Structures are given as structure tokens and as C-alpha cells.
Simulated scan of single mutants.
Amino acid sequence: MQTTFALRRNEIVSDDPPVDEILERWPALKMESQICAEFHRISNINLKNCFYAELDRHAPRLQRLFRRKAARTGKAAEVLSRIFQMYDLQEQVDVHVRRAAVLRALPAYLHDDDSGFLKQWDVAQSEPDIGDSPVGLLISATSDAMYLCPENVAVMLEGKTVIDFPTFADAFVVLFALIYALHLNYPKDMANTFDFTQKVLMGLEDGNMRPRVLSLKNELLAVE
């Protein structure tokens, strides 16, 4: 993969081939280790080390901001309130649950619509209907706390699952890396969330930050 990187990158960026074609030619891009390695080749950043270090550093402040918003009125406040009601009911809150709560709340706070990005599948039912999902996550669970404690989270691209993970955060960050590796556009309805991930959590700043993302970044940096 290292040897063929320049050729592969040129073809992906210049020719914009379908995802199926790319993954058929380079099936290693369905493996977590190779997705992380590809992201490092593109950005010179260790994907998981950087993402989790920044997410965990900002998580306490993000939770305070989200809970403050949840106490208000409006659609975003209602979504945030439901997320943290479920979070507070968890008997055991470990790092995976904390990360999932923050990542699940982020779109609501940034006024993104994740209804098309996140798909739920009750494993007791038939096969999930994901044909209309160009980019997203498929959460398999039987409980109401599916985002916090899923049984499985699959990365979806062009209506097909690519790779599975046991936690929400792992699936999210690898999907972010795949978007980079395959030169895809961010989901339109989740643009603020991915912009925040790219420019605040990953430090991949391009000098053009969306207004809501810039506002949240300033809130994180403000002295209380």
C-alpha cells in the first residue's frame, strides 16, 4: 500500500472512481490498520491518537455546553436533553460511553441533521435498509441506549457496509478517515460536524471554518 500510494492517490483524486471500484482494487482499505495508515500517508497525522486526545481533552467542556443548551427550548435542546437523560441513566459510564455521548450530541448542537447519516438496525429484524445511505453509520442494538452501548456499528458507503466496530467513536473516526482516503464529500446534512472534526479535533485547518463551527471553537477556548 505504501509503494502504490502515489498512483492510487492520483487516480482517486483525478478520476473520481466509484467507491466499489476503489475497494475492489485495494481491498486493504477495508481494514482498520490500513485505513489509519492511508490517513497518515495523506495528512502525516496519527488518526486515533490525535482524534481521541483532542476529543477527550474537550469532552468535559463540550458536555457542559451541550447540557446548558439542553436546558433551553427548541428542537436542538430537545434532542440534547434526550441524549443526556439516557446518558445519566447508564449504570456504568466508561470512556467509550462518554465519547459516544459527545459525538452523538455534536450534530444537534451544530444544527446538523443526522437522521440520514445514522441508521438503526434491530438485530432481531430482517436485513437493514441502507440502500439510500451514501455515507453513514449503521448501529445494531436492541436497547434505547443504542448510540451509547451498541452491539455493533458498521461504516456505510454507497449503500453497503465496509467495516464493523464495537464502539460508536471508533466507527465515526474511521469513517472520517475513509472520507479522506476515498476523496469523498462530507454528508451535506452533517457538514458542520465533520468540519469540526477536521479543523478542531484533527487540527487540519484550511483557513475557512463554518460559522457554527467557529463559534463552538471559540466557546471551547473561552475562559470560564
Rank of each mutant, 00 (worst) to 15 (best):
V13A: 15
M146F: 08
D132K: 02
V155A: 01
L221D: 14
E78T: 15
A59F: 02
Q63H: 14
A108D: 01
P134R: 08
V102F: 04
C50D: 11
V19Y: 03
A59E: 12
E151Q: 13
F66M: 14
L65C: 03
S14G: 10
I179D: 01
G159P: 02
V223L: 15
A100Y: 01
G116T: 03
L62Q: 00
D56I: 08
I83H: 03
A59W: 01
P211Q: 04
A100T: 02
A70D: 04
S33M: 04
S133D: 04
S115F: 05
L175P: 00
A28C: 08
V93R: 15
R9F: 06
F117I: 07
K217N: 15
R72H: 13
E11Q: 14
S33A: 13
R61Q: 12
P18V: 10
D189P: 05
R25M: 10
D206G: 02
N10I: 07
R99K: 04
R9S: 11
I83F: 05
F39C: 05
A222Y: 08
H111G: 05
N10Y: 13
L106D: 01
N10C: 12
Y147N: 04
D20M: 09
D112R: 09
Y109E: 09
E219L: 10
E205M: 07
K119A: 08
H183M: 04
D15S: 12
V95R: 12
F66D: 06
Q92M: 07
S143H: 13
S43E: 14
L80P: 00
I139E: 03
A77H: 07
D132I: 05
D170C: 06
D94G: 14
L148C: 00
L47F: 09
L220M: 10
K75Q: 14
F84I: 05
E11P: 00
C149N: 08
L65Q: 09
L221E: 15
R9V: 07
T73L: 04
D129K: 09
S215P: 03
A191Y: 09
P150C: 01
R104T: 07
C149E: 08
D56L: 04
Q34C: 09
K69H: 09
H58K: 13
L55K: 07
Y87K: 00
K48M: 06
M146K: 15
M190K: 00
L157K: 03
E127G: 02
E21F: 06
V223R: 11
T193N: 10
F176M: 00
L138E: 01
I42N: 10
Y52A: 05
D164K: 12
V19K: 07
I22W: 10
P150W: 00
A177D: 13
E219Y: 06
I83D: 08
P128N: 08
V213G: 01
D15G: 06
R72T: 15
D195E: 14
K119N: 10
I35W: 07
E205F: 03
M156Q: 09
F117N: 03
A70M: 07
C50V: 14
Q34H: 14
D94P: 03
L182H: 13
D129Q: 11
L137C: 05
V135E: 02
I139R: 00
H111Y: 06
P18W: 10
M146Q: 12
Q63K: 13
D113K: 11
E78A: 15
F39D: 01
P107F: 13
T161D: 01
I130A: 00
E38H: 12
Q92K: 13
D206Q: 13
V153A: 02
G207R: 05
R72S: 15
M1P: 11
V155F: 01
P128E: 06
L106P: 02
D189S: 15
P128G: 05
